[in-house]
Design a protein around this nucleic acid. Structure first.
Length: 542
RNA sequence: GCGCCCAUAGCUCAAUUGGAUAGAGCAACAGCCUUCUAAGCUGUAGGUUAGUGGUUCGAGUCCACUUGGGCGUACCA
């Protein structure tokens, strides 16, 4: 609809050149009586032309070539909106297109040929993924899906670091538990990893090696085994939510391939760094940031900033057209430094899209659960998946804008899980499948020869809703907002449930019945496609 | 103190990125199943969009300040 109108306006611009000077928007009015599409062109021009917007609107309309089989009415309303009413037959043609394109309907080639990298989860392997990581995992994967739907080839990437202090403590935690399992009396420090999984890893080392590791160092077998086991668990947890990364990028490779060393040299050569108090500093204040930051400590150890920059350079080297980083809000202070450094080195930092999602507050019986992997005070993502199922987990994290501070009442999620809106969507799909089963006995099939019979209010509203899908996918991808898809699907399902209630198929005259079947099947396709973007199943029965 | 994010119905969240009369779901109340799944539908009630000022044809949305919350603010990641 919008594309069609845009072409009409383009044509009119030959006669009204000032139409080219403004950014015309075509909106879907909230209120039905305002038409299918509304344009604000006249209001935007009223200032430059110093004329009443309604007068301008009249001029514009006079210069539009209106095909009455497509547009039935054009009117000027309110302060100067131009409202367009489309012909129902024209709108119904969408059903044919949907039935033809099936799984492909909604995909676009807008970014065909481009490559995107989406980095998400990226939790260091110190323990199981928590509900907190769940939001990052689900949103990251859904964003990657969305980009794929707009034509990108997407690499899902997981960045981790098995070198730092955290991992040393992890290895030593395992070592102590191992000694304990051998019968030694140990003192387990309070700031070590308290989780039961540490004991399990120690136990399996005991089974495998007996007491031969008594003098092994923490950073040897202990850390190695812990990292391996924990990563296996993380991957399994993600897999349950249908998340699979293409690559796991280890920070270590940046050292092994001398990327850190080279970067330091480049910073020095370009006069972007300096030495002070035995440390190396990056001149971030010259790059527009608040203050200079240390990139190599006086101990000779780099801070996280340095490998972060080096890591992002590898993303540029790997020729991605779009680089997406999804972090929790605890990282919000770090990325401006990385972006500034990249820009100073000549990389186009506008290719990097940093997304920050807010934290999930978990409440259990009215009390806030403070998550800490170290203190083993957390609810794991696996536990949540066990409790409510993968579809609910995925839908729950997808249904809200990533910028919201989300509340998650565990007790409520478990108790009222069947009140989750995801079932509302799935139920709509299952109902259509049920129709399909029922019509087979009645010798009925979908037919698009008499779509003009679809004139009931519920039918027309549903058709209009189907029109929106392609646009919603594009917008959700463009703004990196997966929740738009969830919101759209809820509206679509609502339109369908109303249609289902008021527009029966069995017992209706054949031509109308078959047109309704076509409409139902088109709805089924769009529901399924939308759910697949969210990573949620579309069941045939419920 | 400073930086980023947030504040919308009793609760959880939307609102086409500045559009016309701010919408859903829970919860509450009143209805609808001899007919394709009632995990559904219909209706009622619920709002000074935290507050004050500003920008303009037009503000929940943009700007400034205030209040209240989250996350940061390391030679931790």
């Amino acid at each position: 609809m919008k594309n069609y109108l845009a072409s009409l306006f383009d044509e009119a611009a030959y006669k009204l050149p000032h139409l080219r000077e403004i950014q015309i928007s075509f909106d879907r009015p909230k209120i039905e009586t305002h038409g299918d599409i509304s344009s604000n062109a006249a209001m935007l021009l009223s200032k430059t032309l110093k004329k009443n917007p309604r007068e301008i609107a009249n001029e514009i309309i006079a210069n539009l070539t209106i095909d009455s089989t497509k547009i039935t009415k054009v009117e000027i309303a309110g302060p100067g909106f131009i409202n367009f009413f489309f012909h129902p037959d024209f709108l119904a043609k969408k059903i044919e297109i949907i039935l033809k394109e099936k799984d492909e309907f909604g995909k676009s080639k807008k970014h065909a040929g481009k490559r995107a990298n989406v980095e998400f989860v990226s939790a260091n392997p110190t323990g199981p993924l928590t509900v907190g990581h769940g939001r990052n995992a689900v949103c990251g994967d859904t964003l990657a899906n969305l980009l794929e739907w707009t034509g990108y080839e997407v690499d899902r990437e997981y960045y981790f670091n098995n070198a730092g202090r955290q991992m040393r403590v992890l290895g030593d935690s395992v070592r102590l538990r191992y000694l304990e399992s051998l019968g030694d009396t140990i003192e387990f420090p309070e700031d070590y990893y308290q989780g039961e999984y540490i004991k399990a890893i120690a136990e399996s080392l005991n089974n495998e090696f007996g007491d031969t590791l008594r003098n092994e160092e923490a950073e040897g077998k202990f850390k190695e085994k812990a990292e391996k086991e924990i990563f296996l668990d993380i991957e399994k947890t993600l897999q349950r939510l249908k998340i699979k990364h293409k690559s796991f990028f280890n920070e270590n490779t940046l050292y092994e391939e001398k990327k850190i060393e080279n970067l330091l040299k480049t910073f020095a050569d370009k006069n972007l760094s300096y030495e002070k108090d035995g440390a190396i500093w990056l001149k971030l204040s010259e790059l527009g940031n608040e203050q200079d930051k240390v990139i190599v400590k006086s101990t000779g150890e780099p801070t996280y900033r340095l490998p972060d920059v080096a890591y992002h350079i590898t993303k540029f080297d790997r020729k991605f057209d779009l680089i997406v980083d999804l972090f929790g809000s605890d990282h919000n202070a770090t990325y401006p430094d990385v972006l500034a450094a990249l820009q100073a080195l000549g990389y186009d930092s506008s290719k990097v899209k940093v997304l920050i999602h807010q934290f999930v507050t978990i409440t259990q019986n009215g009390e806030i659960v403070k998550m800490s992997t170290r203190k083993a005070n957390y609810v794991t993502l696996d536990e949540l998946t066990d409790e409510v199922g993968a579809d609910v987990v995925r839908y729950f994290f997808n249904m809200r804008n990533i910028s919201t501070h989300m509340n998650f009442d565990l007790a409520l999620a478990k108790k009222h899980s069947d009140e989750n809106p995801v079932f509302y969507l799935q139920y709509a799909h299952a109902r259509i499948c049920s129709i399909v089963r029922a019509i087979e006995n009645e010798k009925l099939a979908a037919a698009t020869d008499h779509l003009n019979l679809l004139q009931a209010d519920e039918e027309l509203k549903l058709i209009r809703k189907l029109h929106q899908f392609e646009e919603e996918v594009l917008l959700a991808a463009e703004y990196f907002e997966p929740n738009r898809i969830a919101a759209y699907l809820e509206e679509l399902a609502a339109s369908f449930h109303k249609f289902y209630t008021f527009c029966r198929i069995l017992g209706t005259e054949k031509n109308l019945a078959e047109a309704r079947i076509a409409l139902a099947l088109a709805t089924k396709i769009v529901l399924k496609n939308g759910l697949s973007i969210l990573g949620v199943t579309a069941p045939d029965r419920m």
